[in-house]
Amino acid sequence: MTDRLLELRSVSRTFHLGTRQVRAVNAVTADVRRGECLAVVGESGSGKSTLANLILGVLPPDPGGEIRLEGEILPHRRQRRHRQAIQLVQQNPLSSLNPKRSIGASIRLALDVHGIGDRQDRPARVGALLEEVGLPADFATRPPAALSGGQRQRVAIARALACESGLVVLDEPTSALDVRVQSRVLALLAQLRAQRGLTYVFITHDLSVVRNIADRILVIEAGRVVEVGDTVNLFESPRHPCTRRLISAVPVIGAEEVAFRERVRGLAEGLQEAAGGTG
């Protein structure tokens, strides 16, 4: 019996636009194990951010679906303890930071709301959090507009980590970071996971990142889960065409990687040929 922290049971979400319907998430059933890093990958528009919003309770699922945290069904209207148990790093860091507030005040607010640390300690804690994500502590006085894209993204990560929640949902958290800063942030995430026993749902399109941090991977296509598996297995023998397509198109810089990609591309093409009935 595995220790399931979060369980999704046929969770769907349909949007209505006039006469049109968009089923962004379609009967997703999945588990997130305590302490793991589960990557969610899929093509643009496949429903990843919608899934994140359903987990957070920002959006209600369609009737019939069920989301459980530690075995307890999560209502759409979450209580304070539910809200504290799950944190989100949003895909777009600008819209998630209040432009009128200094970034220090934004992080401080998160600490206040969640009642973390003593009142007197909080300013120092804000500075320490900024330094952890590689920003000078004196950035605390700046408004978000005076930060670069990657600096804002790191503020969003610092704020989510401030809350010390058990489950952190990260939606493209390192997409605006150069590879050096990205590696530092990923190392920090790994360290915090080990120290605090955090669990991550890590949404990203960057398979090179996924390969190196995720324990398991969930691939979604058009709102449906098409493949779930252990990271190493999934990269070595991807089964679903969507997975193969994603791996075989990764832009790379090393010769070894080119060879790996060619091999997966061979698998993807072999699959097409088999489907076409050619020998």
Binding site: R180, A187, N212, R261
Partner: peptide, 27 residues
């Protein structure tokens, strides 16, 4: 890409995660 010469460029290239695995590079 063939011959990065500046120390910063070299450090940048060394930090790129690989799809062939090997973990998060030390920076």
């Amino acid at each position: 890409f063939r011959d990065p010469r500046h120390a910063y460029t070299q450090a940048l290239m060394a930090a790129a995660p690989r799809i062939t695995g090997g973990g998060i590079p030390d920076v």
